[in-house]
């Protein structure tokens, strides 16, 4: 595991130019947009950079070599989730820092952020990781793009259908009334439970995929 972590960190270190651009973009965004947009942007881009290590591993039959090292396939999957989550959290922290700093520069006060804000961002990042890791392992970086386009197409269609249904059933009001009765802490804890469940399920799916693959 340690060797894989070191490899991924060194690969990401070599992407310092991309990281710098992301940081600068985030910084400029924090002046123009709401802090939640900046934080979400930073977290998602951070996760995407970490997910990029899967493409590096694939390059030049890399998997074939990787699995001749003292690394089991399960360890590889666990390490990928760990790297993406850690990198996402680091990027989120950078997003918070930037938003706080620009808030201070603009208004002269340090902006505070709620736990719910953090959990919401983490929830989105975990969905991204839980979907992308098994798909990338199964289809490879190139083919997974097609799968992801198709999947997002299906999600967009589902959202459209749901929004029409919602309008017809006055769903927003019903859900809004129900949610207003639930405390923010309960919602945050529920989301954390969903994040853990989603990652666990995705990890087991990834185990099955990678153990069936031949390199």
């Amino acid at each position: 595991m340690k060797g894989l972590m070191v490899k991924d960190l060194l690969l990401m270190k070599d992407q310092w130019k991309s990281t710098l651009i992301v940081l600068m973009m985030g910084f400029f965004m924090s002046f123009s947009f709401d802090s939640s947009v900046t934080i979400m942007y930073m977290t998602m881009i951070g996760c995407m950079l970490a997910l990029g290590t899967l493409a590096y591993d694939e390059f030049d039959n890399g998997y074939q070599f990787l699995f001749t090292l003292p690394v089991s396939r399960r360890t590889y999957v666990i390490e990928k989730f760990a790297v993406v989550i850690c990198w996402g959290i680091c990027a989120m922290a950078a997003g918070f820092l930037m938003s706080a700093l620009t808030g201070f520069l603009k208004n002269g006060v340090l902006q505070s952020f709620s736990l719910e804000n953090c959990v919401g961002v983490l929830f989105s990042a975990s969905i991204l990781a839980s979907i992308m890791i098994p798909i990338r392992i199964k289809y490879g970086s190139e083919n997974s793009k097609i799968v992801i386009y198709v999947m997002f197409g299906i999600i967009a269609a589902a959202v459209l259908a749901f929004s029409k249904l919602k309008a017809a059933m006055n769903f927003a009001n019903t859900v809004g009334q129900w949610l207003s009765g639930v405390s923010d802490t309960v919602i945050a804890l529920t989301l954390i439970a969903v994040i853990i469940l989603g990652i666990t399920v995705s990890m087991f799916i990834s185990f099955r995929i990678i153990e069936k693959k031949e390199y």
């Binding site: 490899k7 060194l10 591993d57 390059f59 890399g62």
Partner: peptide, 14 residues
């Protein structure tokens, strides 16, 4: 292995 090795994006130092 004949056709694989460390990622081409790494340096020897890494």
């Amino acid at each position: 292995m004949a056709e694989s090795g460390f990622s081409g994006y790494l340096t020897l130092r890494s």
